[in-house]
């Protein structure tokens, strides 16, 4: 199938992009990496009147270490994340996630900001943002607005972004060395969206306990899901088994072609066990 017709604006400045968003409202879509939007256009699942291409806004790309924060511009491509020394050193969890996203020819175009703004519930990067307590930097004509990742993902493809806003950057707190993380996912084929994925982080104590765990599942609900009950259980006396049991309260996964809800719940428990072993290992 070919896309339905649309007009195209190559934004040369943020102001031009905001103008277009103001003028066309819901009829306009921002084009970043396009690796989710263009398939939707090709399948006529998305039929915007106007496409506002922000790829030319050089200021929106780049990875910088700023004090205790790694600020990553929205237009930073997955391939750049993969190649980044800063990400590898300070955000190892993110570094582990990126190679699991799709395939090389997709990672060369897909962007961090696009993934965060689309908020696909099965995608890796929104879950990583939650697991790493990232802050989403939204930008509108009025300026920047900072939103904690936990407040950003609102529902299925729903975010806290307001009309006229775009994701400008994501700020990730530098992870201290004792803070460990991993990203595990189960997909039928390498590069597919995960049936269930888990971005997990915790501080490992000398006694082998996991303090302040973050367990963020993806592919199991309308948004990336932070498993609060399991986190509490994991930090407590019950350990991994209690955390796995607690997932029953945290997760309400949907049925789909892969299997029924209990299938995903089961896989989530398995991943939790494996993640805990990794973090402790």
């Amino acid at each position: 199938m070919k896309p339905a017709p649309f007009a195209y604006l190559r934004a040369r400045s943020l102001a031009e992009a905001f103008d277009a968003l103001d003028r066309h409202g819901e009829e306009a879509r921002l084009l970043a990496g396009g690796q989710s939007l263009i398939p939707a256009l090709n399948l006529r699942l998305a039929t915007p009147a106007v496409l506002v291409d922000i790829n030319g806004l050089a200021g929106l790309a780049g990875i910088a270490l700023q004090g205790g924060v790694v600020r990553i511009g929205a237009l930073t491509r997955h391939a750049a994340l993969e190649a980044s020394e800063i990400v590898a050193r300070h955000l190892p969890l993110l570094a582990e996630a990126v190679p699991q996203i799709a395939h090389p020819a997709i990672r060369s175009r897909g962007t961090l900001g696009g993934s965060i703004a689309l908020a696909d519930p099965a995608a890796e990067l929104p879950a990583c943002a939650l697991a790493l307590d990232a802050t989403i930097v939204a930008m509108g004509r009025a300026g920047e607005r900072r939103i904690a990742a936990r407040d950003f993902f609102r529902g299925l493809y729903q975010t806290d972004l307001q009309p006229g806003e775009l994701v400008a950057a994501v700020e990730f707190p530098v992870q201290p060395p004792e803070r460990r993380g991993c990203v595990l996912e189960l997909a039928r084929r390498q590069g597919d969206y995960a049936i269930v994925g888990l971005a997990a982080a915790a501080t490992v104590q000398g006694d082998g306990a996991l303090r302040d765990p973050r367990l963020v599942f993806f592919g199991v609900g309308p948004t990336p899901v932070r498993a609060a009950a399991a986190e509490a259980a994991l930090a407590g006396a019950g350990g991994v088994a209690a955390a796995q049991a607690a997932l029953e309260r945290d997760l309400d996964p949907p049925a789909d072609l892969h299997g029924p809800p209990q299938f995903r719940r089961h896989l989530a428990r398995v991943l939790l066990g494996r993640a805990a072993a990794r973090l402790l290992g």
């Binding site: 195209y8 084009l31 396009g34 690796q35 263009i38 398939p39 090709n42 496409l51 391939a79």
Partner: peptide, 28 residues
């Protein structure tokens, strides 16, 4: 034409991309 099969893989600005997931208009 939905980015799965890789038959349209080409090189743009030194990197491989899916040719069906970029618009010609983006290639200025």
């Amino acid at each position: 034409e939905h980015g799965v099969c890789g038959a349209c893989t080409i090189r743009v600005n030194g990197e491989i991309v899916r040719g069906c997931l970029m618009l010609a208009a983006q290639c200025d």
